[in-house]
């Protein structure tokens, strides 16, 4: 029973995070004086989260991505995340070079790249220490 309860909470984490991000968008856009866009952004995030829960019923892949119980799907998730990170790094580097070639400071791409680099080094160190 306890395992089932833990699993239930686990697969709800991503949809709940999606809804919470929708609330953050709603508040941020309302503060910026654009509440209509805020409501729209919130609705999109709620629809996305609901779509995930519906897809979970039909797709083993979505189910695995949400509850992380299947080691193969978890490995696919990890590799997909790595590919995504590589593409993001490439985009940031290209954008940084284009910005400095235009005579700009390279902000904010320089900061994003620095955060990525420091995060990678810290992750390697921590994971190396943990074995």
């Amino acid at each position: 029973m306890q395992t089932t309860a833990k699993t239930s909470r686990k697969y709800l984490a991503t949809p709940i995070f999606g809804v919470l991000m929708g609330v953050v968008y709603l508040v941020a856009l309302s503060v910026a004086g654009n509440p209509v866009s805020g409501v729209l952004a919130f609705a999109v995030m709620v629809a996305f989260s609901g779509g995930l829960l519906l897809a979970r019923r039909r797709s083993e892949t979505v189910r695995g991505l949400l509850d992380h119980r299947d080691e193969r799907i978890s490995a696919i998730d990890l590799r997909a995340t790595a590919v995504t990170a590589l593409v993001m790094i490439a985009v940031v580097l290209v954008a940084f070079v284009v910005e400095i070639a235009r005579g700009q400071s390279g902000w904010p791409y320089s900061m994003i790249g620095a955060v990525g680099g420091v995060t990678y080094l810290a992750a390697v160190i921590v994971l190396r220490i943990r074995g």
């Binding site: 083993e60 892949t61 189910r63 695995g64 119980r69 299947d70 080691e71 193969r72 799907i73």
Partner: peptide, 10 residues
């Protein structure tokens, strides 16, 4: 085994 059918197939 508490994995997906796709995993067993793979």
């Amino acid at each position: 085994m508490d994995v997906s059918r796709q995993t067993i197939n793979s």
